[in-house]
Design a protein around this nucleic acid. Structure first.
Lengths: 182, 182
DNA sequence: TTTGCTGCAAAAAATTTGCAATATT
DNA sequence: AATATTGCAAATTTTTTGCAGCAAA
């Protein structure tokens, strides 16, 4: 139904002190597959072909996606490696439990984001083109911890999303307005 | 189905520089009712008894709520002032458009929060007791703006939620663990 | 073998929508 | 009078669940 795209990261050519923004892959000792295997084993769960195939697909590209999008690019019923909708949902949830994926809500859908192998980050969401950008800020985390401490909270995680209009959409709009004047 | 409660605000007895946390009502020249009237008029929409009644109910208590909770404390079908589910949903959406309410997703539900008459704030969510606390941080907003600027975004809004375990739940847990040892 | 897992279809949960009747402006 | 709004029920949308048969360990 809806599409998400272009999870970009730009370099901080900036200015002020502690501005870290680049969201770069981390080095990991285990591949997502291996990490998932560990998770399954630790819980007495089974290594099935469906789970293996799904993890492979999910980590074959670093993009945000929702269940529907994932299912769309998977083999159809009858084809090889077909996985039922129910199993896709079940496996996505397991990935979140296993710390491989992160999930959040966007326009009513659950969006998944690679967690394993990526630094903690948050998102900028363009309300015009629905593009999702990532950013990373240690300062943000520091404030988070400060706020939590103030209220006696022990932090488990956080989600932040900044809604706005991206550079491209602003440009597009400006151009259009100019044309409208002609 | 689920219940949300106790939107508290604690005072910052703190310490470090710019820590502002108290979320206190703002002074407003218009009541929510009046503000909604303006909104309706400006769009050629109508002032109906249902809308009037709903705004009244929604602003009669400063709490987070979802559609289900609201409907529960409203008159039932057959009673005076009954408002259909569809209208409740439609009106809540209008409130968001009108800037009276804010909404965000929590555990699969849409949660509404008073926006009009309250300073911009974010939330701490206890994953154990599902309590929602508010906090306010200018620093957070500053970082938000900085991150947006870095990516060429024009900010429209943001949502942040910190998940964790609240003071009370931590205590409860600790006590329980102690008992378990006996 | 034992028990977890999968696919299927049906169920759920939370909104949304079509439409005829009704109420505002 | 013109048309926005409401209530109702049916439809959507997204995700979950029950269950019988299948498959890892």
């Amino acid at each position: 139904m809806a599409e998400l795209s272009e999870s970009t990261s730009e370099t901080a050519k900036s200015s002020s002190e502690t501005v870290a923004t680049k969201v770069q892959p981390l080095e990991t000792s285990l591949s997502p597959q291996e990490r998932f295997s560990e998770y399954l084993q630790s819980r007495g769960l089974r290594q099935t072909s469906q789970r293996k195939f799904l993890i492979e697909q999910v980590f074959s590209q670093h993009e945000h996606f929702d269940a529907e999008e994932l299912i769309e690019r998977l083999p159809r019923r009858g084809e090889d490696n077909y996985v039922s909708t129910a199993t896709v949902y079940r496996t996505l949830r397991e990935c979140v439990d296993a710390g491989l994926l992160n999930s959040f809500q966007l326009d009513g859908r659950t969006v998944y984001d690679h967690d394993y192998g990526y630094p903690e980050h948050d998102h900028l969401y363009c309300t015009r083109c629905r593009k999702l950008l990532e950013f990373q800020s240690d300062e943000l985390v520091a404030i988070r911890d400060q706020m939590a401490a103030l209220h006696g909270f022990r932090v488990e995680s956080h989600k932040m999303i900044i809604n706005g209009v991206c550079r491209e959409c602003s440009r597009r709009r400006r151009k259009k307005r100019k044309q409208d004047l002609v």
